[in-house]
Structure formats: C-alpha cells, structure tokens
Write a protein that binds this DNA or RNA. Structure first.
Length: 653
RNA sequence: GCGCCUGUAGCUCAGCCGGAUAGAGCGGUGGAUUCCUAAUCCACAGGUCGGGGGUUCGAGUCCCUCCAGGCGCACCA
C-alpha cells in the first residue's frame, strides 16, 4: 500500500521544484521516525540547500506553500531542519487498508518466467544439524516470499548420493562394522542418528591407518559406477537418510518440488554433454604438462574477478578421468536453465512424508506405479532465474560455476545464476561446553567430527519446553487437560521459535547458536508473534460472545473523525502498509531478516496498543471501531508475514 | 600473500539512497494482573558506533589507513 504513495509524493515534489526553482531533482521519499512528524517525508530541501544557496527550512517552506497536496493526504508540514512531511488523511487511508491484501502479486509482469530455488542439499549420510536448518529455513522463506509476490517458483533439493560422505558411511557399515546390506536395511530408526555416530567413527578409523583410505576410493568408484554391493549399500543408505531428512524438514513445514540426485546426473551423462560444449567453445583445455598435467582445466586468469589466485586454472576433469564437483555443478546449472540439451527422467517420490503438492525425484519412471499414474508431472527445469542457497564458504566455487556459463556464452544466465550466500551456524561457547565439547570460544560444527546439535534433538527440546509452558498456564487457569490440542500447540510453538530464530538473523553474520537464546519464548521470538495474533483473535472471540460485530467495514472506517487516530494507533496502520515493500525488498536483496523484523515491529506495536486501548469496554463507538479496524489490519498483515515466514498461528495459547 | 565477511549497550543484534534525539531483545533495577489471559506492557540504568585520518552543511552509514576476529583461495564436496 505505502509503496504506491511514494511515487505520488516524489512526483509532486519534482514538479514543484521544477516550477518554483527551475531545477531537475529526484527527491528521496522516506518514512519519518515518529508518527507525529508525518507519514512520508523528503529531505530534498536539505539536499538542495547548497545548490540553491538558501537555508533548508526556507526552501522547505516555499515548497509547502506552492505544492499541490496529492490525493489522499491531509496536510504538508515543515519539520526539523527542513524536511517536507506529508500527512495522510488517516481515516481514508485506514479504510483502504481494511480492504487491501497486505502482500500481493507484483511479479506478474514476468509471470511465465520461473525461479528455481535450490536449498537444503544435505549430504545423505547422517542426521541433519542446526546448520542445515538455517539453509532450509532461508530457502523455504525465500520460496514462500517469491510465491507470495506471484513468481512461479520451483524448489529443488539436491541429493549428493555418490559423494565421499556417503562413501564413508558405506565403508563404516561394510568394512568397519562388517555389516551386510540386509543388516543395514534391518537397522531400526533413527537411522540418521546411527549414521551420525558411525560417520565420525570412520573418520577416526581412517586416521588410525591411512591405508584404509583405499576403501574410500574403491567405494567412491563403485558409487559412481552404480554397480556392486558397495553401490547397493550406498543407495540404501542415501534412501533411508533422505527419508529422515524429509521427515525432519516436514516437522518445520519445509517441502520441495523435486529431489535431484547426483547419481542420475552421472547415469544420464549430463557432464558428457556439458563437456562437449565446454570443449567446443574452448572454455576448457587439456594440460600437457605442469602441475595439472593430464587434466582438463578451465582457465580463469583472464577474468577480473579471479585475479590473485594461487592457481589461475580450475581443474574440471582430473588426470584419472573423473569429474570434479565444479564440473558436475556446471552441467547441473546448465540443465536448470534448459541449456544442456538433455533432461532427467522423473518419478513420484514414495519413500517419505508428502505434503501439499506431490514430491518428485529424478530417476527412471517406475512402471509399477499402483495409483494409476494419476499425478501429472510438472515441467521441471528451464528456469529464468536460479537461486542456489549455499553457505558463504562456497562462494568461490559458485563463482566458478557462473564463470563456466559465461565461458559458454550464456552471459544472461550467468547473471541470473544467484548464489544466496549465508554464514554458517556455530555453537556458542556456553552451549558447546554444555554439550561436552571444550568451550572456551565459539565452536564450528562438523559432521565429520560429530560436533553439532541435531535438528531433531533441538525440535524435541523445543516441543518439550513449549508443552511444559502450556501445561503450566493451563493448570493456572484450572484447565488441565493434556490432549491432542496441547500436542499440536506445542509443535506450533516449537516451529515458530525455530523458524523465527533462523529467519531473523542477517545472512552475513555467523549465528552463534545458544540453546537458551534459541529456546526463548519471550521478546523477539516466534511465540511473541503468535501471542500477538492470539490476542487479536481473543478480542474477536469475545466480541462474538457478546453478540457484537467482529469486523468493521472499510466504508465505516472512512467516515471516522480524524481525532480517533492517536499516533500509536495510526503508527500500526502505517507499519502494516509497508508489508508489500518489505517483502519485495527482502526477496530482491535476499535479506529475509527484513520480513522477520517487520513482523516483530508489527507485533510490538500491537502488544503496546492492546494495553492502552481496550475495545470490548470502550463506550465511544468511533473509538471502538477505530481500534477494531487497527486490530483487523494488524491481524491480516501479520498473518501474511507469518505465512511467508512459515510461522504457524494458533487460535489460543 | 590475495579475496570476501564482521567489529554499535554487560550479552545477542537492528540501523533502508549520508539527514530528525543511535534503536530492539536478553540480562539488571523498579512498577502494572477485579480488566480483550502477564508467553504481555510501562519506567529507569547502560553507548569514545574497533582506532586514526579524509569528503560533506551534516558520517554508525561514503573514501583511505591501521587494529582485531571469521571464512575462502585443492586433481574434497
């Protein structure tokens, strides 16, 4: 809503600046820090003071005298050192807010263009930890924001089922523990927890005798070839772990459209196709001698962004003929844009929980599909924009992938290959110590070393804590039953706490994960948002019980006297009117914390108003309706933001 | 060595294109519950915005430099 008013104000100012002072100036329009100062303001008089050789306030006053008040505004004032401040006609603005959707489609102009978001991408060899949760929450919130803004969005989760990490667990089962494939199959859940321990155990086992690394190499080759007992074990492990990962993510409301498997990229020779292109265009060359003798490398020395590297060439194909990660990733990225000239085969995914829309995986179509093939397969790939949610440590590799597209002449697609980089999650000193790791400073998590907080453990802890809090409150109200409703509410609160914790952090900062901080239900937290909406809903429930109207129509709000809008009430309306531009800016800059912070902002304003402005017991009808209108606007706005954040909103707490 | 990121209250962090008195949460202190449930609210205390230069009418924000910390720069992913 507010985003539509800014150009109005800018236009009026530009016109009057031209008319009165004869200058061409593009005025900045911002929101003043306090509501009593106005709703939209421009510091243009300050900017122009030098050029016009006049005091800023004098310029501002002249502007106010001469300008034509734009539609929807009540007055213009000069404030502070010389700001020109515009004040909305509050009742009319609020009336529009009552009927307007807080977040609407704005990407409609490029509606057919699809955005592919890749996230989660956990190696299928161990349990997910809290670092993976940051990735998944960021990816999921981004996808929700893009969808909310009307972009066609496809979410992919890349499964590296043929890499060293899976190979190590295969070695762990087959060589270290002497299991058969059937033994692995028979292991009880939680299988991912078993692998978590085994994986770090294998790491230590290798250290005990470096000769054992030969087993890793042999297994890796078997996984890539896809044949034999080791490959069979690898497939089984990956399948079981992926099922666990999807179950963990389903707990917090994260889902996907497609699981892309590295094994399929190998099986279908995606890299062969990409390699042909790379050779044809001269993007790679064969090294006859030197450090990289026998390898195919991509030269980076000519590119400005790769200056100062120790080695200006990136190996794409090793001297033993195998392909590096970057090579495979270039092929995969080409496929995402529909530039590879090949496609996957697809099959419905049947090994795990499935939510709203059906989940698909890459792989041979299963002929024995028992459900009559009712599901129609979407058209995967061929994105116009590709956003890869990958931690900041991989920035260099992501740049090489983009350079690969550039080298092939796909400049546009290279520009639209976006690395959504975020910093990792480490453990706070206090939390590391509590978990038994030496805790003199922050500690980086490491799956390889078995250092970390497992995602499901954290969720269990959050659920247990919220259940405790609920029961405590219910007992205090003499309302002690603990049924399914309590379970559901405990889960909702846990999800809100976790998702908000991950979403509120700026992406460029390392999160020092502190267990007390993460499980806090007070202040800036997911439950704080939930509680604010519960209060709004309680007001409506009470109104219904009293037989009073639960909603006030926009037509009524438009006729309210201006005096009902105290600055604090009005401030919430204006804050709510910024949801659209906040979500747009968050999606455009990939700074999703903006959404979380705006949601807190709204909730804080509402909580404060709640105490100062009762509705049920207000006798003055105008005042009551204004307050109810604000409650309505608040509720819809926070609901819209919570939907994007994936924070569930319960009816009561 | 080169590159990227970070340094703001005791702790965790906001601070949009340079602009109005640098803001939250936690923790601390003191208050608010016959009221739409206190998972809330209000008040108070707490700041050399890492240091130093520069640009500007104006710098937490831009430029330079130094200091401190993190992360990258593989025929690992």
């Amino acid at each position: 809503m507010l985003q539509r008013k800014r150009p109005l104000v800018a236009g009026v100012l530009r016109r009057v600046l031209s008319d009165v002072f004869g200058i061409d100036h593009d005025p900045v329009v911002e929101v003043p820090p306090q509501r009593r100062l106005g709703d939209l303001a421009s510091p243009c008089a300050l900017h122009l003071a030098r050029e016009l050789r006049q005091a800023p306030r004098a310029i501002a006053e002249r502007l106010v005298e001469c300008l034509e008040l734009p539609e929807g505004f009540e007055r213009v004032t000069v404030e502070g050192p010389g700001y020109v401040n515009f004040h909305f006609a509050r009742s009319r603005f609020a009336a529009v807010m009552i009927d307007a959707a807080p977040v609407v489609e704005s990407g409609a102009s490029d509606a057919p263009a699809k955005v592919i978001v890749e996230h989660t991408n956990i190696n299928p060899n161990k349990a997910a930890h809290i670092g993976h949760l940051r990735n998944a929450v960021l990816g999921d919130v981004l996808a929700r924001a893009l969808r909310g803004l009307g972009h066609k969005t496809e979410v992919q989760n890349y499964i590296d089922d043929t890499g060293v990490q899976v190979a190590d667990v295969v070695v762990g089962f087959l060589d270290l523990r002497d299991c058969s494939v059937a033994d692995i199959e028979a292991l009880p859940e939680p299988f991912d927890y078993v692998c978590w321990d085994l994986y770090s155990e294998v790491g230590r086992w290798y250290e005990g005798d470096p000769q054992r690394l030969e087993l890793r190499r042999r297994t890796l080759h078997a996984l890539e070839a896809g044949e034999g007992r080791r490959a069979e074990a690898g497939r089984l492990i990956a399948r079981r772990i992926v099922a666990r990962h999807l179950a963990t993510m389903a707990r917090i409301g994260v889902d996907y459209d497609l699981l892309t498997h590295e094994s399929e990229i190998l099986r279908l020779d995606f890299f062969v196709a990409a390699f042909e292109q790379l050779k044809e265009t001269g993007a790679v060359r064969f090294e006859e001698s030197g450090k990289n003798a026998g390898c195919w490398v991509m030269p980076l020395a000519d590119s400005e962004e790769f200056q100062g590297l120790e080695d200006p060439d990136k190996v794409i194909v090793r001297s033993d003929g195998t392909v590096t990660y970057v090579g495979k990733d270039i092929a995969y990225q080409l496929w995402k844009f529909g530039l590879l000239g090949r496609d996957f085969e697809y099959a419905p995914f049947r090994d795990g929980p499935r939510r709203g829309s059906p989940l698909w995986k890459t792989g041979p179509a299963e002929p024995d599909a028992g459900d009559g093939g009712a599901e129609r397969r979407p058209d995967f790939g061929r994105g116009a924009r590709v956003i890869n949610v990958i931690d900041a440590r991989q920035a260099y590799l992501q740049r090489i992938v983009r350079a690969g597209l550039e080298a092939l002449g796909h400049d546009g697609e290279a520009r639209d290959s976006i690395h959504f980089a975020y910093e990792m999650v480490s453990l706070s000193a206090k939390t590391a110590e509590r978990l038994g790791f030496s805790g003199d400073s922050q500690l980086e998590m490491s799956g390889r070393k078995g250092i970390g907080v497992k995602a499901d453990d954290l969720l269990d802890q959050l659920e247990a804590k919220s259940r405790g809090e609920i029961l405590e409150r219910r007992a205090a109200d003499g309302d002690g039953e603990a049924g399914e409703e309590v379970d559901l509410l405990a889960r909702q609160i846990a999800v809100a706490a976790l998702r908000f914790f991950m979403a509120r952090a700026t992406t460029t900062r390392v999160i020092a994960f502190d267990i007390d901080d993460a499980t806090s239900f007070e202040g800036e937290s997911g439950p704080y948002l939930q509680y604010s909406i519960v209060r709004a809903r309680n007001i409506r429930r009470r109104l219904r019980e009293e037989g009073l109207a639960q909603e006030v129509p926009g037509s009524r709000v438009a006729t309210l006297p201006a005096g009902v809008w105290s600055d604090d009430l009005w401030d919430l309306v204006l804050c709510a009117s910024q949801c659209q531009e906040v979500v747009e800016r968050a999606a455009a800059t990939l700074e999703l914390s903006l959404i979380a912070r705006h949601a807190v902002d709204l909730a804080q304003k509402f909580h404060a108003i709640y105490h100062r402005h009762p509705i049920l017991h207000e006798q003055d009808a105008d005042l009551r309706d204004a307050r109810l209108a604000v409650t309505q606007v608040f509720e819809r706005s926070l609901e819209a933001l919570a939907e994007i954040l994936g924070v569930p909103l319960p009816e009561r707490m």
